[in-house]
């Protein structure tokens, strides 16, 4: 159980995390979703006592992080796959973490086996691929067999096989009754793994809801229609009491999943249809809409993608 209460972090004028209050419960995967720069990593660092909150409080099983005896046995975290000394072997990296928390050496072999790094245990971490580094970071999180696990963007940069492995790992950890708290900036990724969703934008809490509720609330299903006899169809649908939305590109949209009904109406009135397709608004769209106002770094479509090419030699003039 992780409890945040009015958690706030300010860097000078800039508010990175703004009055966050929510609880992460055991037995489920809780997704921590937000656009880049929303304050996810800052929140997680405060949770581990690495950054000090400007205001508010965060507790792990009712205690502050630095009050935990052997904290790795309470909570294991993967913050950054690169947060290790590249010159140290995978085994020694895990061994020094284990020793600091009184975890027996044989557990190091166990977690290396769990993440599939036994064969490269004696190799230096700097030779590892991103995926292997991620696995080593996860081995570190699992080391103390903790009841709470926290992963910051664990699938970033992984190949499909690695992504699949992490998803299954998180689900199985939650199924064992552990608390699993995982951040991502991808709604589609969360939809596949998370049971509960905490959404933040610009440091503020935007949603704290179950995944199922989020889907039913945000996934609009509708029917898209294209027809050369647009006016006639509109009349017919109005006559039948169906609300139609006219979109800019010439197609019509009807909320709900009534494609059979609309097809039958069109057939009765002998209207030609070019398209009649049930559609589902993606969760990604719903997430984008939710966070639209709070995205810090907008990409502007009118910005040129690359500077215009310059003739050779201009760079020398120090323009």
């Amino acid at each position: 159980m992780i409890e945040l209460e009015g958690l706030t972090k300010r860097y000078g004028e800039k508010v990175a995390v703004n009055n966050l209050t929510f609880t992460v419960r055991p037995g489920i995967v809780t997704g921590f979703l937000g656009p880049n720069g929303a304050g996810k990593s800052t929140t997680m660092r405060m949770l581990l006592g690495l950054d000090r909150p400007t205001a508010g409080d965060v507790r792990i099983d009712g205690k502050h992080y630095d009050q935990l005896k052997d904290p790795l046995t309470y909570i294991g975290a993967l913050l950054d796959a690169k947060a290790m000394h590249g010159g140290r072997s995978a085994f020694n990296h895990l061994l020094c973490l284990a020793q600091s928390n009184g975890i027996p050496r044989k557990r190091v072999y166990q977690v290396l086996d769990t993440v599939g790094l036994t064969a490269v245990a004696k190799k230096k971490a700097k030779g590892f691929s991103l995926g292997m580094g991620q696995r080593l970071g996860i081995a570190g999180a699992l080391l103390g067999d903790p009841r709470i696990l926290m992963f910051d963007e664990p699938v970033n940069g992984l190949d499909p096989e690695g992504i699949h492995w992490i998803r299954n790992l998180m689900k199985s950890l939650a199924a064992q009754g552990r608390t699993v708290f995982v951040s991502s900036h991808l709604m589609s990724e969360m939809a596949l793994t998370a049971d509960h969703l905490v959404v933040i934008g610009q440091g503020r809490l935007l949603a704290d809801t179950s995944m199922a509720d989020f889907i039913t609330q945000n996934s609009r299903s509708y029917v898209r229609i294209r027809t050369p006899q647009r006016e006639r169809l509109l009349d017919v649908l109005h006559g039948a009491g169906v609300t139609v939305v006219e979109t800019g590109n010439g197609s019509l949209e009807v909320d709900g999943s009534k494609s059979e009904h609309i097809g039958e109406l069109a057939a009765q009135h002998q209207i030609v249809l070019h398209e009649l397709s049930p559609q589902q608004a993606s969760l990604e769209d719903a997430f984008m809409q939710l966070t639209a106002e709070s995205v810090e770094y907008h990409a502007h479509s009118d910005t040129p993608a690359a500077p215009p090419p310059q003739p050779w030699g201009d760079g020398w003039k120090g323009n």
Partner: peptide, 16 residues
């Protein structure tokens, strides 16, 4: 080394 490699965050999470 702790700082230049980022190990410090792992270290302080293990020993707060």
């Amino acid at each position: 080394n702790e700082y230049s490699t980022g190990m410090i965050r792992t270290s302080l999470a293990a020993v707060p």
